[in-house]
């Protein structure tokens, strides 16, 4: 039982990261109408930037966090014109092109990370940012500060995100575009500009995720983005592409599932088992558990 509780807590903290990643991914899918497959690579890149900044500023946590947020937003906005250029020709090219473009961006990021930073070795974040100190320890159950922080930030950010989506003018425009882009244009919502808001917002989300990731894992490696990218795509398909609420549940579910497999079977099987279960789900429900919004 203690193993179970401990692993559920672990799973919830990893799951909160999946949830945020899926939320950012879905936001871009719904509003900017792209499949940003390499969104997690952008997040990992921001982790590296944060690490670099902390290294040269004497482990300043504040500057590190600001660097993560800034670089993520910047990268998101730099990629926006590329995506929008591709989307403009959508009469001839289907939406998958955006996914391939995103894969190209991901290739570049991963390779740059493995060449230009730390000789391609995994980087370790300084202890001032990483919360590996246990706050609570009962038997086998131990909760680290990193876990508490990442779950706390996760809850706050997701609530803020949904508040923005359902209570503000920009959120209303987001939902309108998600439902019917051409109808939204008829009403007078500028598609490109609102799309740029969504790029900025997903960049902000990405920076937050980078900080959470650093707190939880304590390290980052060039291949981390790719590993997570597959899971994020899988989660969003299982939940139903573009289904934000579904992404919350499935993201947390995947985190818990992985943690339980790690706790009871063996760590190296967690990916395989998680993906087999997801494969079965997608065979039974091709539109996802919660229904696709596309």
């Amino acid at each position: 039982m203690q193993v179970f509780i401990a692993q559920v807590i672990n799973g919830l903290s990893t799951g909160s990261i999946y949830v945020l990643l899926v939320t950012g991914f879905n936001l871009l899918l719904l509003v900017a109408m792209i499949i940003h497959f390499s969104y997690p690579q952008v997040v990992v890149f921001s982790m590296y930037i944060a690490w670099l900044v902390m290294k040269y500023t004497g482990n300043s946590v504040v500057l590190g966090i600001l660097a993560a947020l800034g670089s993520s937003i910047l990268l998101s906005l730099i990629s926006a014109p590329l995506f929008q250029k591709v989307m403009k020709k959508r009469g001839e090219v289907d939406i998958n092109t955006s996914m391939v473009l995103s894969m190209g961006i991901g290739m570049i990021i991963t390779d740059v990370l493995s060449h230009a930073f730390n000789n391609g070795l995994p980087i370790a974040f300084p202890a001032s940012l990483v919360g590996s100190a246990p706050v609570l320890r009962v038997g086998l159950i131990s909760v680290t500060t990193g876990q508490v922080w990442s779950m706390g930030i996760g809850i706050v950010v997701v609530s803020l995100f949904f508040l923005l989506l359902y209570r503000t003018r920009a959120g209303r425009a987001f939902r309108a575009i998600a439902e019917d882009p051409s109808g939204a244009r008829l009403v007078g919502i500028p598609l490109l500009r609102t799309g740029l808001y969504s790029y900025t917002l997903s960049g902000l989300l990405g920076g937050t995720i980078a900080v959470m990731f650093a707190m939880l894992l304590g390290y980052a490696s060039p291949g981390l983005g790719e590993q997570v990218a597959h899971k994020v795509l899988a989660v969003s398909i299982i939940a139903g592409l573009g289904n934000l609420v579904g992404g919350l549940f499935v993201g947390l579910g995947l985190g818990i599932l992985e943690a339980l497999v790690q706790g009871y079977v063996s760590g190296s099987w967690s990916n395989a088992i998680a993906f087999v279960i997801m494969l079965i789900i997608i065979l039974v429900k091709p539109k996802g558990l919660f229904g696709s919004k596309l």
Binding site: L82, L101, G104, I105, G106, I108, D111, H115
Partner: peptide
């Protein structure tokens, strides 16, 4: 830097 070149070419 081959992969980076491929990626850039793709984009």
């Amino acid at each position: 830097w081959r992969i980076v070149i491929y990626g850039a070419l793709l984009i």
